[in-house]
Amino acid sequence: MIEGALFLSALLSVFITVGIIGVLLFETVSFFGEVSILDFLTDTEWTPLFADKHFGILPLFTGTFLTTLIAMAVSLPIGLISAIYLSEYASDRLRTTAKPFLEILAAIPTVVYGYFALLFVTPLLQKIIPDLSGFNALSPGIVMGIMIIPIISSLSEDAMHAVPNGLREGGYALGSTRLQVALRVVLPAAFSGVAASFILGISRAVGETMIVAVAAGLQPRLTLNPFVPVETVTAYIVQVSLGDTPAGTIEYRTIFAAGMSLFVVTFLLNIISYSLRKRFREVYE
């Protein structure tokens, strides 16, 4: 009885996943019945809501790419440095108190981060960069980076903390300084776990919606300039879902085509992350 109930609930989540992929696929296929894949991948404009319709996904992906790049440029070094500090330098007491605090960052609703970017970080940045547009890729990118720091620091710290003490002792016994042990012994030994945390961070940034929808500007634009308004794949989906787009139209189907492309990207990233973590486990068990 209990086993059956557990099995059913496990089955349910599998069904839901399969259902989502099914719907995505179905609508995507009918989308590509009307728009050629070549146009979708090569056209440099994305204007499905205008009279002159173009269906090039590239501007949305450059928006996603740009904000993700900025987010990783912030979260990667800070996350990694705090992981090294917590794992190799901090006392046990500090580590066990500081880590939960850091993880609280991950519990803040992303819409709050979005308005934090729009109403606090952007005006702040405008003081330094006068040309910065009110909506831009830079500010939400930075704020996304702050949001991702705990993912990277927490998972990297787990990976580094799992490195056997014997390796550290081996390093010290050869006359290493603490920094040398951290950077040349522990970090390489934890490499796959650390890399997996980066990739998880990237996939989080790629899939992040609210921050970019609020602060990046909702203007699809093929550019790598972080100072002007852009739109990401996720932000587009929000934008079109909020409007009064009738079901079954081509505008409606763009949601699924964009969603499918996004799914493929994050799915690949998750596979890479999973295989890296698996390799990591094999080394020390």
């Binding site: 390796l167 040398q180 030994a189």
Partner: peptide, 27 residues
Amino acid sequence: RKIGMVFQKPNPFPKSIYENIAYGLRI
């Protein structure tokens, strides 16, 4: 550095054989 140590459980670094030996010089 002057007083080296070998431990109970072999603890080679997860690097190549060459890099394990080169480590002490590189640092």
